[in-house]
Structures are given as C-alpha cells and as structure tokens.
Design a protein around this nucleic acid. Structure first.
Length: 529
RNA sequence: GGGCCUAUAGCUCAGUCGGUAGAGCAGCGGCCUUUUAAGCCGUUGGUCGCAGGUUCGAGUCCUGCUGGGCCCA
C-alpha cells in the first residue's frame, strides 16, 4: 500500500521506515527492560517544569546554588547528548525551553550501575525525568546534576537534525510535531498564539462582552459572501453547510436580549489556499447593542493595542522587511488612521476623486485596472476592485477604511448623508485585511430587499452571493436594536504579532493536498465500511 | 488558470561538461569525569519523487505525472 496523507495525517501506508534506526532503538528498548526500566510508565516524577526552573532559578549564581541547594525533578525530551567518558551532558526540553542535565558516573545513585548502563541506551527524542540538584557548569550554564533517573518514553524514530531542524516546508506541515519539537521559533509562535487568544478573550470580557457559541453547521450559510462547504446529516437526512460566518446567529442573540456577545471559532470558506487564506480560519465576531461604528473602531484599535502591548510587550512591532532589509515597523498606537474608501483609491491610485462619483468613469477605471467579470459587476463592486488594485497593499500602518458601497455590504446600515454607501469599516495592516465591522442593518424591510438583490446576483452567476435566511429576517422583525458588529481575523492577527509571512506558519495543521488522492478515497471508503 | 523554482542517506545539503553516489549531523564500535553545533579514531546507511524517452552510458539532457514553494491574473 502507498502512503496516504491528508492535512499532515498519514492515513495508511507502509510501517514507518523499517530502517537501522528503528531496529537499533527497539533493541535498546529491550535492554532497558532487561535492566528493570519500564520504557513507557504512566506517570513522570516531576517537581518542576523546565520553563519554571529557568524562570525561578535562571539568575542564581553558582555560590547561591551551593549555599542553598535546590533538589528537584524535571522531565523532558532529550534533544542533545554529549558523552565525555564518565561524564555525560544532555539537553532536555519541555514547553519549548531547554535545560542541561549533567550525569556524572560517581554522582548517580544505585551502586549496581543500573543508571550508568541505562544512559548508554538513551536516544535523542526519548523522554526522561531526572532528579538532582541545580548547579552551574564552569561556562555558567544552569544544569541539573543527576542523582536519579526515571525513564519515561522510548522514541523509535529519530528526530530531525539538531542544528538545522526540519527545513522542508511540506514536511514541517505534514509532520508538525517534528517541526515543533526541533524548531524553537515555531513553538514560540504557537505559544504566542495561545496567549493572543487568552488576551483577546479577557479584553472582550473586560469590555462587558459574554462569550457564546453558535452553530458551525448551518442549514443556510450566511453572514458573508463566500462559497460554503457542504456536509450531510444522516439522521435528519438534510444537507448542512459549514458556516462561513457566525454573524446571523449572533445577531439573533442580540434580538433575544443579550447586550454584548462575542464568539471565537472557526469559519469555513470553500476557496483557494494562499499565504493569507486557509479554508478553515479562526475569527472573533462581536456584537454590541446600542453601539455604532465609532464605538466599534475604538474597541478594535484598543484591542490591537492591548494585544501588542500585553502579548508582545511593545506598541510598535516588526513585520516583514523594508527594501533595504531592515525590519518594517508597525505602530499600534491609538488612534488608528481613518480613510474613506474612495479617498483611498484616489490617493493611492493617483486618480481624480471626482471620477469616482461617475459610474461611467468607474467602469473606465476598472477596465484600465483589468478587473475581471466586468459586465457582471455593479459600480459598487468595481469600487471594491479598484480599492484592492490600487490601495490595499499600500496600507501598511493600521488604517480603517470606511464608507463602503452598499453592493459590497448587504448587512450594513446605509449612511444617512451618503446614499448607496454604508457605515462599515475594514481595518488594514501591512496590506492585509484584519478586521471588518458594521453599524448593523436592523431594518427588516431593507434587509429583505438586500437579500433579494443578493438572490438576483446569485441567479446572474455569482455563486458567492448570499442566500435568503427567512428566519433571520423574522428575528429582525421582532426588533433588533442599533448594534455595532465586529469581525477580526485571528490567524492574520497572529501573523502580524509574531512576524510570520504565511498563514500556514500560524495554523498548526493547515490544509494540504493528500499525497495520493486516489488512495485517500480508497482508504476513507474502506474505513467507512 | 498561467509562469518560474524545487524533490539526492533518518535530517541539512553538495554533486562540474552526461562517465562507478558525496559531506556534515544522526546511527554503530572505540577513547575521554564541566561539555554545549564537544573533540579524536574507525564505520553502517541510497528505488537520486514517479513513469517514459534520448544515449554505449542519465542524479545530470528531453517529455509527462505527482507533491511542495514563489510570482502573476
């Protein structure tokens, strides 16, 4: 059978390399057993985690460690072993941090030399727990001087190279565990991602929002213009769509009387994969009754400012490089710049602002910009295309783009003084759309008209246009108060904060093509039987 | 969808003009009781992504396929 991988998971195939490494390690495993070690015990002896040891004792001097001995037990995966006759140095890692262990033959307990013999059976990748006192070597490195060893797990397959780590981009994603185990900056990115999410949640809660959960499988996908994934519920015998946004359900909660809610979870869009797009991605959406777009802007800029300061420790963070190779700095100082969409096109496209008021001129400009599907699109759509073409990539410092055409925004309240345009912003940073927010449309009659315009678009061939959700309209008819809604792309936020240029660097298991599609189908069929 | 690049040992990478497949790390056998990309001596390990073609001879040239990366509409 051939190997078959889906999103990094090997579904079926030959046993992993039956090579010399595996064979040798199985023999060592047997020898460990013969010495009386359980190669896979259930519980590790541990008084401290490695990060904890580094944090608590990292600044102790050799004298302090001698005057006040710290005896502790730590567990970790062996990442390096340096044998020196009757001394052995090793680095163990846990939680993304390393600690040196010093095994000196005379220091080890057990007169029968069991530990010393076992040491020779350790491989890179094995887990051990070590008990001993903290010391500093003569080069000053904090180390555990081992007296007692507990063997925890035998690894049968080798880790990637210790110095370069795993480089092959494909393999790093398909076998993310090896990437995490050997590339410290990868572990760091994902630890920061976790802290960003925790900080985001506490910030939203501090602003009076309640976290809620709404369906990820929806009978009518809504809240965005995108092609959905379809799945099937057997017992109900209905097709369901993986949600493209939680919006319409969160709004129902506002109708129900929740005042401020937010949700952080995955949405799914059946579109291409790129450096900035993964078919499933994480979004935070929030709805605040009584707020308008100005309130949402303040919420948003303070959110990013808080993330930068609390997680990364600075208001100004590097993202990518300038042409001369120096880091490009992004400032999250508030307030962020505000710029209406048409002004952005005029400014960055070097276009006479007056032309953007004339539909015929807009079509002409769109032709010059080589916009696709020109005849199918309304002037409002073309403005969106022109913005993408001329302005988007140049919006480096955080900028709220405002005053969007209504055609691009079926769920947003119209601006009273600007017919055809709505009270919406998108936040751009480093040329990326980070966030999208509306003064929510709460007039059920206008909302129904907007849906009908969407249906007309769908019939004209735009399969990303919205479907009619009558229950959502019904909910609006029961009274939906003025409301400020916000969506924040979490993956892209993590990219910015951690200075990663690809969304795949901030998603643990991004979508990937199976290596053998034919076999994948066969395997899943067999599994289903 | 189009263009460019890429796939060689478990990992990181060389491989010249087409002429017997290489190094470092890792592994294995030794030496070494404060090393840290430890060092020293010896040594195992290859379906050169897959399938064709050209050639006396292909890792190398050509075609197709597959996976991955980058750029463009």
């Amino acid at each position: 059978m051939v190997d078959c991988w889906i999103r990094g998971i090997r579904l079926a195939g030959e046993p992993m390399e039956s090579n010399q490494y595996r064979q040798v390690r199985i023999e060592k495993l047997e020898k460990l057993k013969a010495l009386g070690f359980d190669p896979y015990p259930a519980k590790a002896k541990r008084t401290h985690g490695v990060p904890q040891v580094v944090a608590e004792f990292g600044d102790r001097t050799p004298e302090q460690l001698e005057a006040e001995p710290q005896v502790l037990s730590v567990m970790g995966r062996i990442l390096a072993i340096r044998e020196m006759g009757k001394s052995v140095f090793a680095h163990i890692a846990e939680g993304g941090q390393r600690l040196q262990v010093y095994f000196k033959k005379n220091d080890l307990d057990e007169a029968d030399a069991r530990f010393w013999d076992a040491l020779k059976l350790f491989d890179l990748g094995d887990f051990i727990s070590v008990t001993g006192s903290l010391m500093r070597t003569k080069t000053g490195e904090l180390s555990v001087r081992a007296q007692d060893i507990q063997f925890l797990t035998k690894a049968l397959l080798p880790l990637p190279e210790k110095w370069h780590g795993l480089q092959d981009k494909e393999q790093r994603i398909r076998q993310r565990y090896l990437d995490l185990a050997t590339n410290a900056e990868v572990m760091d990115t994902f630890q920061k991602r976790s802290r960003i999410l925790a900080t985001l949640r506490s910030y939203m809660v501090s602003q009076g929002f309640l976290e809620v959960e709404t369906p990820m499988m929806q009978p009518i996908p809504g809240g965005a213009t995108a092609r959905p994934f379809v799945t099937h519920h057997n017992a109900l015998d209905i097709d369901l769509y993986l949600r493209i946004a939680p919006e319409l359900y969160l709004k129902r909660l506002i109708v129900g009387g929740f005042e401020r809610v937010f949700e952080v979870n995955r949405s799914f869009r059946n579109e291409g994969i790129s450096q900035r797009h993964n078919p499933e991605f994480t979004m935070m959406e929030s709805y605040a009754a009584g707020d308008d777009l100005r309130d949402v802007m303040r919420l948003t800029e303070n959110l990013f400012n808080t993330l930068a300061k609390e997680v990364m420790g600075a208001e100004e963070l590097p993202y990518g490089e300038l042409e001369d190779g120096s880091p490009r700095m992004i400032s999250y100082a508030v307030p962020f710049r505000r710029l209406p969409l048409k002004d952005a096109i005029a400014q960055y496209g070097n276009i006479d602002r007056a032309r953007l008021e004339d539909p015929a001129e807009i079509v002409k400009l769109a032709k010059e910009a080589h916009v696709e599907d020109l005849d199918r699109k309304l002037p409002g759509h073309l403005l969106g295309d022109l913005f993408e073409h001329y302005a988007e990539k140049q919006l480096i410092q955080p900028t709220f783009i405002t005053d969007y055409p209504v055609e691009m925004s079926p769920l947003t309240k119209e601006l009273p003084d600007q017919p055809g345009f709505v009270d919406r912003f998108e936040l751009f940073v480093a040329g990326m759309e980070l966030s999208n927010a509306y003064s929510e449309l709460n007039d059920p009659i206008v909302q129904l008209e907007r849906f009908q315009a969407q249906i007309a678009e769908r019939e004209a061939g735009n399969d990303e246009a919205m479907m009619l959700d009558q229950d959502f309209i019904d909910s609006l008819e029961h009274g939906f108060p003025p409301c400020g809604g916000l969506g924040v792309g979490i993956d892209r936020t993590v990219m910015l904060m951690t200075n990663n240029q690809s969304i795949r660097d901030v998603i643990l298991f991004p979508a990937m093509r199976p290596i053998k599609p034919g076999v994948a189908e066969q395997v899943s069929r067999e599994a289903a039987e």
